[in-house]
């Protein structure tokens, strides 16, 4: 098994502070579907682009790092035997049907970090 990161690209995140359950319903349903698949190791939804702050060199700017039509709206890590299996899961993401899409990247390493006791 190998781990793949799935970066979800959309015009913006559906998870704004005033988002209703209806706004995020399609994503929540997919999250449950992913959970049931047993393939997902960790998953995060991000807040909208308005809340993004970027640092390039010394300069801090308002907004996503790359100013494009789509931004990373969330990401998750899944475990799959091979790329085909990872793609089969990743392509089910609602973003693919809503004008955005996903990027699948093999994970080189990482995971949760054990923090030293305070």
């Amino acid at each position: 098994m190998a781990q793949y990161a799935v970066l979800i690209y959309a015009g913006d995140s559906a998870h704004s502070s005033d988002a209703t359950a209806e706004d995020t319903a399609v994503h929540d349903r997919h999250a449950q579907e992913l959970e049931r698949s047993g393939a997902v190791v960790a998953a995060y939804a991000l807040t909208p682009r308005d809340l993004a702050t970027s640092v390039r060199g010394d300069a801090v700017t308002d907004g996503p790092f790359v100013d494009t039509k789509e931004i990373v709206a969330g990401f998750y890590i899944l475990e799959a035997a091979d790329l085909d299996e990872a793609l089969a899961i990743a392509r089910l993401n609602p973003a693919c049907r809503l004008g955005g899409g996903v990027e699948v990247r093999p994970v080189a390493g990482g995971g949760f970090v054990q923090r030293p006791a305070a």
Binding site: A2, A81, D82, L83, D84, A88, P106
Partner: peptide, 14 residues
Amino acid sequence: TGARIPYRVPRPAE
């Protein structure tokens, strides 16, 4: 190799 593209004939659905 790195992304693990399988050495396989695709399944009927694909």
